[in-house]
Amino acid sequence: MNVNPENTHDAILVIGAGELGMAVIRNLAQRAALSAGTTITVLLRQASIHSREPGKQRDVAELRALGVTLLAGDLLTATTSDLADLFRPFTTLVCCTGFAAGGGTQLKIAHAVLAAGVKRYFPWQFGVDYDLIGKGSGQDLFDEQLDVRHLLRAQTRTEWVIVSTGIFTSYLFEPSFGIVDLARNTVHALGSWDNAVTVTTPEDIGVLTAAILFAAPRIVNQVVYIAGDTLTYARLADIVDGVTGTKVRRVTWDIAYLAAGLAREPGDTVRKYRLAFAKGTGVAWDMNQTFNHKHHIGMTSAEQWARQKISGQSRSAGDAA
């Protein structure tokens, strides 16, 4: 893929260096090294930069080895004006800090980006199709994501690019989400077995976000769909059968069941997610429509991920026994 000459003198700020942020930064740094004048800066809390926690120290050391500049700032305590002052020197901003930052954070960041006059913004929208889902899904964080889209579309000074990824592939197998429950040898379908979900690994999101940012011709004011895999819950159960070598129990959590659970615990974020996904709208898209398919970029499928992670766990347990 060609590099857009418009991107070759770009001051890029990435917010956050968690699992997704590190994947994005690694790939941006690799491409920036080939683009004279392009710089990468990462916004981290001061406590993270100077942390004695081994994991954070490793990340900071890696960032410095990549030639990335570290900028101290706190999204939670900073005002919109404070953030705008931090953002103003940069031409492109990529937000890799998601829902864990709390409600209202994404809107505050978006307002600060616009106030700073940043030329190009990749908001934290690494998820589902909030336009199709619309307001009132039961997940209030989704409503805020839609508000961010409305804010960006209502102005013309800052270009924006939204990368729709579906959920992290690992989340399908996360015990707390409850879709794949390996401990109970059970797979739950949200809504129905024919409902589908789109998933992508953070590593693949990092590769494609960098490719999209540096793409020629320049991508402007678009929602770009990517996908490691789009699969039904029935297909997911088949994958788990094949990977584990067993026959899993298949249990449907229909909308009525999930809505009743949320009514009992209205503040439970995971229950909100389950109900939103059970409705089957905006959470899956055709692989043939994705950026990676059109540009022939290989991705990690759900089955490949499961064979790498679940099979590896099974072998380790067997070796230990």
Rank of each mutant, 00 (worst) to 15 (best):
V3P: 03
E6W: 00
N7D: 07
N7Y: 04
N7C: 11
A11E: 15
L20P: 06
M22P: 03
L34H: 10
G37M: 01
S48N: 11
E53N: 15
G55A: 13
G55K: 11
D59I: 13
E62G: 08
L63K: 06
L70F: 04
A78G: 07
A78V: 00
T79V: 04
T80D: 12
D82Q: 07
F87T: 07
R88E: 14
P89A: 03
T91D: 11
V94P: 06
T97Y: 08
L107S: 15
I109M: 09
A110R: 06
V118M: 03
W124H: 14
G134L: 00
F142I: 10
E144Q: 08
R149T: 13
R157W: 02
T158R: 04
T158H: 09
W160K: 04
I167V: 14
F168E: 07
Y171F: 15
F173E: 13
V180R: 13
W193S: 01
V199E: 12
E203R: 08
E203T: 07
L208M: 13
A210W: 05
A211E: 15
L213A: 10
L213E: 11
A216Q: 13
I219Y: 08
I219P: 06
V220P: 03
V223E: 12
Y225I: 00
Y225L: 10
G228K: 02
D229A: 09
T232N: 04
A234L: 05
I239E: 06
V243S: 09
G245S: 02
K247L: 02
V248C: 04
R249V: 05
W253A: 09
A259F: 05
A259C: 03
G261I: 00
L262Y: 12
E265L: 03
P266E: 06
Y273K: 01
R274A: 13
L275F: 02
L275T: 11
A276I: 00
F277Y: 14
A278M: 02
K279Q: 15
N288S: 14
N292R: 00
H293G: 01
H295C: 01
E303M: 08
R307L: 03
S311A: 13
Q313D: 15
R315Y: 11
A317T: 12
D319H: 07
D319E: 11
D319L: 11
